Amino acid sequence: MRHLLNTLFVTSEDIYLTLDGENIVANRDKTVIARYPLHTLSGIISFSYPGASPALMGACAQRGIALSFCTPRGRFLARVTGEANGNVLLRRAQYRAADDPNQSCRIARTMIFGKIHNGRWSVERTRRDHALRVDAERLKVVSDQMKALLPQILQAGDLEQLRGLEGVAANAYFGGFEEMILGDRDTFAFDKRSRRPPLNPTNALLSFVYSLLSYDCAAALESVGLDSYVGFLHRDRPGRSSLALDLMEELRPCVADRFVLTLINNRILKEEDFVRQDNGGVFLRDDARRTVLKRWQERKKETLTHPYLGEKIPWGLVTYLQALLLARYLREDLDAYPPFLWK
């Protein structure tokens, strides 16, 4: 079983990362600020513009440590990768499946089925646990709409039809998302999903956490030997990790959305944790981003029983195990890809 290691988040904008033996060194104005052993890390995400030394990038590539660079606002810039991992036959199988519309649809619809199932279960969980604090009837309507779409998704004959059904489900889900917000509803009011830029604090949180989840999915896919840039639902686009976006679909409601709801409902973040720009965009402040990253790491250490494998694992390994199951399906060790169905 793979061990869950740490991810190092570099949130200060003026940090330059270097290598010293088997340690990563954080420098500010040529002064050493901190040191971290490489063997304890599975990934590094830098929100700093200075970047990292070529020696460190090479060491990360050799050791399979995912090193990603983002803007201070969290927009993805680049990721360091070394030689392709795994059997070349696995990637050839992945490329053949991606080039086959029927095979792509077969894989994508199981992922979207998982997404809608998990989103509906999240709605039902709120109805059950907070019946006296929410509009239970409104959430029941949302749940019923999503339930009705599940058999249609399994019968979808092509990717365009599948995208249409997923869009209908997403509209229903986000149409009731505000009802699951139990914290400060004035600050975290939510009417619809908005991106580039996010237009309110809830959307700012969702966008930032989705970015974190996509990094984890890309690293997991590469670690099992798959090409994170060649997807099935999300088609090829230069610079986009399409397969990582595919994999994270089924994990959005139970991993990312529930995490965001926890931050809001437990009043961990407040209005002053966000900055509002003249163009209407809303973003996390630096201190708030550190709080989110700390809680994200803590969340990944919590355990659950994997619904397909029946093993007790940390949440942080879910992306890796789903990537492994996808690889096994592409190798024809499994009859179908089993999506993560949250219970």
Rank of each mutant, 00 (worst) to 15 (best):
I33Q: 12
E272G: 10
L261K: 00
A323E: 04
D99G: 14
L165W: 00
D257H: 14
R125Q: 12
D286L: 13
H117E: 12
L149F: 04
V230A: 13
G74M: 01
T262A: 08
S42T: 00
C254D: 11
R120Q: 15
L41H: 11
N203L: 07
K294F: 12
T40R: 14
F259R: 10
V230P: 08
T126Y: 13
T126Q: 10
L17W: 03
L19F: 09
K30V: 08
S53L: 00
C60M: 12
Y215V: 03
N279V: 01
D278N: 10
L263P: 01
Q277F: 10
G225D: 02
A26V: 06
L159C: 10
S122L: 15
P307V: 13
I313L: 15
K300Y: 13
K270I: 11
D246G: 09
W296K: 04
I268T: 03
L269Y: 06
K301R: 15
A84N: 02
L284R: 02
L321G: 00
T305C: 01
F174P: 01
V230H: 10
E249V: 05
Q161H: 08
K301W: 04
R267C: 06
E160R: 04
I33K: 09
T110Y: 14
D20M: 15
P197W: 06
A288M: 00
E311L: 10
A59Q: 00
F188L: 00
P197R: 02
G74S: 00
R289F: 04
L41T: 10
T81Y: 13
G231F: 09
V80G: 00
I24W: 02
R35M: 08
P197M: 10
I107F: 12
V282P: 00
S211M: 14
K140M: 11
P151G: 12
F113Y: 15
H3D: 12
G51Q: 02
N23E: 14
L165M: 07
E271W: 05
G157C: 04
L150K: 13
L221E: 14
T110C: 07
E311V: 14
R328H: 15
R63K: 12
K301C: 08
W315L: 12
E160Y: 06
F190Y: 03
